[in-house]
Simulated scan of single mutants.
Amino acid sequence: MMIEPSVSLQTALRATLISDPAVTALVQPERIRSGSTRPDRFACVMMGHAQTQYLGRASGDQHLARVTLDLHVWAIEGADTAKAIGFAVSRAVIAMP
């Protein structure tokens, strides 16, 4: 069964973020989720507005796609906290397999 690529990206990204100690030190794992509305609890990382652009086929019957996903960082403590969360998230994403 094939899963739409943006769903696979969201799943992999959430798994990466909730397993990263630097991220979970700043954001509770249950507050790292997908959604499109303002969260009711902070700090929070929300994944939303995923898009998949089909690019065609490659050798070996592979399909090529570009997947984009918006990440929104919410923090009530202020801009410094949001920046710290964003930095931890970016470090975790860079290290993704």
Rank of each mutant, 00 (worst) to 15 (best):
K83P: 00
G56D: 11
T68S: 11
A65W: 15
V45W: 05
L9W: 03
L64E: 14
L64N: 06
V27C: 00
H72D: 13
V23E: 02
G56L: 14
P97L: 15
A75W: 12
S6Y: 03
Q53F: 14
R66E: 13
G35H: 14
V23P: 00
G48R: 13
V93F: 10
V27S: 01
Q51W: 07
R91K: 14
I32G: 00
T81P: 00
G35S: 11
E30G: 03
T37M: 07
L26M: 04
A12Q: 04
G78K: 10
L71S: 02
E30Y: 10
A22H: 05
A50Q: 05
F42S: 02
A95R: 12
A12K: 03
M46G: 02
A84R: 13
H72F: 15
T16Q: 09
L9Y: 06
L69H: 09
S59V: 14
P21S: 09
L9F: 07
R91Y: 02
K83A: 13
A25L: 12
T16P: 00
M46P: 00
P5D: 04
P39F: 13
I3Y: 04
A75S: 10
Q51I: 12
S59D: 12
S19V: 03
L17E: 01
V89N: 04
M96I: 15
A43Q: 06
Q28S: 12
L69R: 06
C44Y: 10
Q51Y: 11
I32E: 03
D40N: 04
I76D: 01
S90Y: 09
T24A: 07
Q51N: 10
S8W: 09
M2K: 08
S6G: 01
R14T: 05
D40S: 10
M1G: 01
A84S: 10
I76N: 02
L64I: 15
I3K: 02
E30H: 11
L69F: 06
